[in-house]
Design a protein around this nucleic acid. Sequence first.
DNA 1: GCCAACGTTGGC
DNA 2: GCCAACGTTGGC
Length: 151
Amino acid sequence: MNYWLMKNEPEDYSIDDLAKDKTEPWDGIRNYQVRNMIRDEMRLGDNAFFYHSNCDIPGIYGQMTICKEAYVDHTAFDKNAKYYDPKSKKDTPRWLMVDVKFKKKFNKIVSLKELKSFKELSQMRVVQRGNRLSITKLEKKEWDFIIKLTK
DNA sequence: GCCAACGTTGGC
DNA sequence: GCCAACGTTGGC
C-alpha cells in the first residue's frame, strides 16, 4: 500500500467535481518522473490526497484511491486537448494515466501553510522549495499525521 | 554532451 | 501579475 499526494488546479478539476463523478481518469501528466512513478509504483487500492494548487488556499482538500493502474493517456493524441503532445504516437505512446475514485472531501482542509508548520511533515516534497512534481509519494506516518489534522 | 533560451509551475 | 525554480529543447 502506497500513499500519494496529487495536485490539480481546482479551476481545471476539483474535489467537488470528483465527488460528483465518483471516478475520473487523471490525465495530462507530461513529466517523465511522474510518469515513471505512476507506471512503476502506483498500484490498485493505493491512497491519495487531492491537493488544490494555484488557488486562494492551496492545500489538501480530500481523499481518494487508485482504482485503475497506469494505462495509455489517449488525450496526448488529441490535437484539441489541452495537453496534446505530437511526439506521443499511437504505436509508441509516451504518456500514461491512472483512474482515481472519490473517497471523501475533508470538512477541515489542510492548507499548505499548515503543512509547512509541522516539523513532522518537513520531508514532504510538496512543502519544499521549487518542487514541481504534480504527484509525490508520502510516508505512511505523514499520511496518518495529516489525516489527524482533518479531524 | 554542454548549456543558453525558453516555457511552465505554482506560491505569493 | 510577478517571478523563482525547474524541466525541456535545440544549436553547436
